[in-house]
């Protein structure tokens, strides 16, 4: 069984240089990296366990995205007509993010980069689990880093190990985390001061008298919440009625349709 030792995420819009200065500060190679590599590097710093910087072959680094390194590809393309930049070209390879993490942490195990149509928790979990077929791999730093532009990205990662003490690494665990996250965002967006995620039942109706008692103005807030946090555009508010039945239904919808 695979278990989660640690989880880390970096919210879209985060100032990565500020985060680097606060959390690391002594690795100037950071400034040469493209946005995707900076995100991968910073996630790996949050997930790194002791002892650090000791060469190890049993740790794999598996990174996933939809757009590869598109953001940097555009920067490189701009230089092509005059003086093609070798420093930018190197970062047009989608797997450089795994190399940067391996170099920093001396992870000498498997490193792989994957491009998927969208973040599908079941597919993600299956691919990570398959990497453990390599008999030497005992743990994996696996992450979804999709950098669409310098400020617009999705970045989260797990440190997953075999038979640890943490939660089981599975689609269910991912959904539990997503539900918790959506509850926090709901509380924040609707100014439900004093409420905690534990106060909201996963399956209780969000509208009407039984559940949270939200109204039609709140529907508009939820539509904004979906677009801002998950890149989901609801064409008409009628669709919202289906999606906003409960937090659990919302989470299923987000997992299936999120673009960030």
């Amino acid at each position: 069984m695979l278990t989660i030792k640690q989880f880390a995420s970096i919210p879209a819009g985060t100032d990565l240089t500020a985060l680097y200065r606060a959390a690391v500060g002594d690795y100037p190679k950071f400034f040469k990296m493209d946005t995707a590599c900076k995100l991968g590097f910073l996630l790996a710093e949050q997930l790194a366990d002791e002892p650090r910087f000791v060469p190890r072959e049993d740790r794999a680094v598996l990174m996933f995205s939809t757009c590869g390194c598109l953001c940097n590809d555009l920067h490189y393309e701009e230089t092509v007509k005059d003086f093609p930049s070798p420093a930018l070209f190197v970062y047009t390879l989608p797997n450089i993010i795994t190399g940067e993490i391996a170099i920093r942490n001396k992870y000498e195990g498997e490193t792989s980069a994957y491009v998927l149509e969208r973040f599908d928790p079941a597919q993600f979990a299956a691919l990570v689990e398959q990497a453990f077929q390599d008999g030497v791999t005992g743990s994996a730093l696996c992450g979804w880093v999709d950098a669409r532009s310098e400020g617009d990205f999705t970045a989260f990662a797990f440190l997953v190990e075999r038979d640890g003490n943490g939660l089981e690494f599975s689609v269910e665990t991912y959904m539990e985390q997503l539900i918790e996250e959506i509850k926090l965002k709901l509380i924040d967006a609707l100014n439900l001061d004093g409420m905690t995620p534990a106060d909201i039942d996963n399956d209780a109706p969000l509208f009407g008298d039984e559940g949270l008692g939200l109204d039609s103005i709140d529907v508009l807030e939820l539509i904004v919440l979906l677009e801002r946090n998950y890149g989901i555009r609801l064409a008409n508010p009628q669709e919202g009625k289906k999606v906003f039945q409960s937090v659990a239904v919302m989470a299923d919808y987000v997992a299936a349709n999120r673009t960030k």
Binding site: E57, T98, A102, Y107, E110, D134
Partner: peptide
């Protein structure tokens, strides 16, 4: 099959 990283240099 096996994939291993040098953990040394990106290029």
């Amino acid at each position: 099959g096996a994939v291993r990283n040098d953990a040394n240099h990106i290029s």
